[in-house]
Design a protein around this nucleic acid. Structure first.
Length: 871
DNA sequence: TTAGGGTTAG
């Protein structure tokens, strides 16, 4: 009968838990108890031998010890402690105490353990290495790591095992430094280490990201000879991979004498999770040839690698292998498989896996939602998010961030707000990932006020939170806010700006022409080695180009080791806005020779360059290349460039016909480009026709009314100007005031027309009067029509001399040293009289003036402007 | 040793 029971329980019924089903932990502690039983039996013999030979007269010693050990063997801690309480020092053998402590450790009873400790100390027992080890183990297992460490301070513990256990527990509790401290103590105590010691401690160095410490450990391991051990090699590989030292990990891996499935899986996963998916996959292929059997962990990493490198063919092959090898019922297999298909763009296969898998979890749903989001199927993504709760699966922070990301990409503000409500109800706002994703959603949907609110309510922020809001301000044209928040980040000093921060803030410098601030950030980039980040390098080039420092931009562009399409595009655009059309074209050709194909944005930059340099034939040529050779459908922006090009060169009727024949409906920018052309070529009649179309398309945009008013003013049609001004007033529109600014010694000085608020006003006015007098002496008459107001007002305001760009230029000249380039930015287009005066000033004062207006750059030098009249 | 999520440039 006994045989039958044994057979049954070990074979056909082994899947069913026995009534005394043990968990892993229980089994482990059971093993420890049994070891101890053996140990105790051995010690019992020696003690009783001794008792027989030395203290035969005192039977009570043997009795108390025997009874205590019996309690320990039976696991009866309560009785053991009770008995101990009534025992005297001389009744108890230290080895018996070891047994009781082991039982306390196994039952994790700190209270009893402390009582035993009190008994030991109260009775003045000598705590030797054995007893100390058990005391330490008891405290470690019972979770009182402080007390455990104190035991190590007091007693020299000889066996590595106990050190390892405490080191591990300290690390598990997050006290990595404590763990390392214990390791150092172990080294200085001369305790002999074992291979486990190294696996334990490398995890602590790894968690502290102490590469230095890990490398020292590596050296120590090599000296000690433990490096040969497979487990030690594996933990070194894991250490290097977790600290992004992929090459070091690979070196250890290559030098290992014996590699098991864990070694292979580690290196594959390490490559994949450090962004080197292809390398990971090639190691996987090597692994297939090595004869090591692959397991679920291998496949999971390989799927992740296929997903990252979009290698769907390999993914499919591994999929069918996994099915044959019976992994396909594992949830992890299905989840990574589904994610692999969705990341590779095969949403149908992902859906099939999702449909057919039995244990759909929150992970499966999240991957599916992210998959829909990637394909732009925002509706499906949000629907699935709402469906999963009905299926009884609660979204977690991963799901919520995925769905927010989907709303962000698709500019779904209403859906995003619904998710925000859900977050509030489910109290998930405390999660930093969720808050960051929320702010990103609001920022991408253009709702910076909401983003700011989330930011201000965050109790814990990280650098990504800052980057998200700074970038949000930058992208939503709140350049000043972006810069002030960036300054606040620097002042707070809690986080250092990273590559993304600078890539976020540089466009703000660019849009404000904040040259000095941009240069400061450039220094920061160089000090931190961020220039190798292409996003950073590209936005730096863009910033310098937009701050008027074209040569600097070009030098940095040349320094970019591997230029991508964006690098070339910013440089082409830079040449374009400075009026160097031929250089832009040369660079564009060079880019194509380098094997980089243009996209629609690079064509916008190129066509803009052509139109701003009057290169009509070239413009047409590239417009046709774009359509026929590159098969890119022109967008409104491309059409606007062509209209601009025709209008600038005076081909107004051709431009008009071109607009009428456009295959897509022209918007206000298209007609606006023609309206600008009408101004340049003083065609008031056509301007009136065009203006009506513009006013219809964008009735709220004051810029176009002002443009038309200027056209009338330049033709001295003052009645019409008044009529138009009235129209602006009636609509309740306010003209965006023209202003110019100049950065001097890090401070931005802003001027509006007729501004006398600057502390240097008197000097500025005196300087301008002087320049004007010299100009008249040289036979130059002021271009009064650019005053754009009728005579009466002119007298009041001394309008011409009070234009904001003149004031800014004057301040620049009088307050900066000779040789320094004057950089002025204006929010509207520069006025004709100021343009003339700037040319004259550059000759008179021998200063170079770079004026950026809303349209382009003007570089004044020796009486000439780089725009050559195209503005 | 093994699955899903947040921030960057033209």
């Amino acid at each position: 009968m006994a045989m039958l029971v044994t057979n049954l329980s070990s074979s056909s019924f082994s899947f069913f838990p026995s009534p005394h089903f043990q968990t892993h932990k229980e089994i482990r502690s059971d093993v420890r108890v049994r070891k101890d039983v053996i140990f105790n039996r051995a010690s019992l013999r020696t003690v009783s031998d001794r008792a027989d030979s030395i203290t035969t007269f005192d039977r009570s010693v043997t009795d108390a010890n025997t009874r205590l050990r019996r309690f320990c063997e039976a696991g009866n801690l309560e009785n053991a402690v009770k008995l101990l309480r009534v025992s005297g020092k001389w009744d108890i053998d230290p080895r018996t105490l070891c047994s009781v402590l082991q039982l306390c450790a196994d039952s994790k009873s700190l209270e009893d353990g402390k009582e035993v400790d009190n008994f030991i100390r109260g009775n003045g027992f000598v705590i030797d290495s054995n007893l100390g080890s058990k005391l330490a183990l008891m405290y470690t297992n019972c979770g009182d790591l402080k007390e455990a460490s104190r035991v190590f301070d007091q007693v020299k513990i000889e066996k590595a095992l106990f050190w390892n256990i405490l080191m591990n527990e300290l690390a598990k509790s997050g006290d990595f430094s404590g763990s390392i401290g214990l390791f150092k103590k172990m080294m200085s105590s001369g305790v002999e280490m074992d291979s486990y010691t190294f696996s334990c401690i490398s995890k602590s160095f790894s968690s502290l990201q102490s590469v230095n410490g890990g490398e020292q450990l590596h050296g120590y391991i090599l000296k000690s000879g433990f490096g040969e051990r497979n487990s030690v090699g594996n933990s070194l590989v894991a250490f290097y991979l977790k600290n992004q030292r992929v090459d070091s990990a690979r070196k250890v891996f290559d030098e290992m004498t014996e590699r098991d499935v864990i070694s292979w899986n580690s290196i594959i996963n390490g490559y994949v999770s450090n962004g080197f998916a292809e390398k990971g996959l090639s190691v996987f292929v090597q692994m297939l040839f090595s004869g090591i059997e692959i397991d679920l962990a291998t496949i999971v990493s390989v799927f992740a690698g296929c997903a990252d490198s979009r290698l769907i063919s390999l993914g499919r092959a591994v999929h069918s292998f996994g099915v044959k090898a019976c992994f396909s019922r594992e949830d992890r297999f299905c989840n990574t498989l589904l994610d692999m298909y969705s990341k590779c763009g095969d949403l149908d296969s992902a859906k099939a896996v999702f449909r057919e898998m039995s244990g759909r979890s929150v992970v499966s749903y999240t991957s599916m939602i992210a998959g829909y989001a990637r394909e732009g199927l925002a509706g499906e993504a949000v629907k699935l998010f709402e469906e999963m709760e009905e299926e009884g699966i609660s979204p977690d922070v991963y799901t919520v961030t995925a769905v927010l990301n989907c709303c962000a990409r698709n500019r779904l503000l209403d859906e995003g707000k619904r998710v925000h409500e859900w977050i509030k109800v489910n109290n998930m706002g405390f999660d930093i990932f969720v808050s960051n994703a929320l702010m990103d959603m609001y920022a991408k949907c253009g709702s910076m006020r909401e983003a700011e609110l989330v930011f201000s309510e965050m109790r814990v922020k990280d650098i990504i939170s800052w980057n998200t809001v700074i970038g949000g301000y930058s992208k939503n044209c709140y350049a000043n806010e972006a810069l002030s928040l960036f300054n606040l980040l620097l002042e707070e000093k809690r986080f250092s700006p990273d590559e993304r921060t600078v890539a976020c803030v540089l466009p703000a410098c660019a849009s404000l022409s904040a040259f000095d601030k941009g240069r400061e950030i450039h220094g920061y980039i160089m000090r931190n080695g961020y220039f190798s980040d292409r996003h950073v390098a590209n936005s730096l080039v863009d910033m310098y180009a937009k701050c008027g420092a074209l040569l600097l931009a070009r030098m940095l562009f040349d320094d970019i080791a591997s230029k991508d399409l964006v690098s070339w595009t910013v440089m082409i655009a830079g040449y374009g806005m400075h009026g160097f059309g031929k250089e832009a074209i040369a660079l564009f050709n060079q880019m194509r020779q380098a094997g980089i194909e243009p996209d629609e944005i690079s064509f916008v930059s190129l066509l803009y360059a052509c139109s701003h340099s009057g290169l009509v034939d070239e413009g047409w040529r590239f417009f046709n290349i774009m359509r026929h050779e590159c098969k890119i459908e022109p967008t409104v922006e491309h059409y606007a460039c062509i209209v601009d090009m025709l209008a600038r060169t005076g081909d107004l009727s051709k431009a008009y016909r071109f607009i009428e024949n456009m295959p897509i409906p022209p918007d206000a920018t298209i007609w606006g480009a023609l309206l600008c052309g009408c101004r340049i070529h003083h065609d008031v009649k056509l301007a009136e026709r065009v203006a009506e179309k513009v006013f219809e398309l964008e009735p709220e945009n004051t810029g176009y009314y002002v443009l038309m008013a200027n056209i009338y003013a330049e033709a001295e049609k003052w009645e019409e100007v008044k009529r138009l001004r009235k129209r602006i007033g009636q609509r309740g529109l306010r003209k965006n005031p023209g202003c110019s600014w100049i950065e001097i010694k890090g401070r931005v000085n802003i001027f509006v027309a007729g501004d006398s608020s600057n502390s240097e006003t008197e000097k500025i006015e005196a300087f301008l009067r002087g320049v004007r007098a010299r100009m008249i002496e040289e036979g130059y008459s002021p271009l009064t029509k650019y005053a754009l107001i009728d005579a009466e007002e002119m007298e009041k305001e001394e309008a011409l001399c009070g234009h904001s760009e003149k004031l800014a230029m004057a301040l620049g000249i009088i307050s900066s040293g000779h040789g320094k380039i004057i950089r002025v930015t204006k929010n509207l287009r520069v006025c004709g009289d100021c343009h003339e005066m700037a040319k004259f000033m550059s000759k008179l004062t021998r200063r170079e003036i770079v004026l950026r207006d809303s349209n382009r750059f003007h570089q004044f030098k020796d009486g000439h402007c780089s725009c050559r009249g195209f503005w």
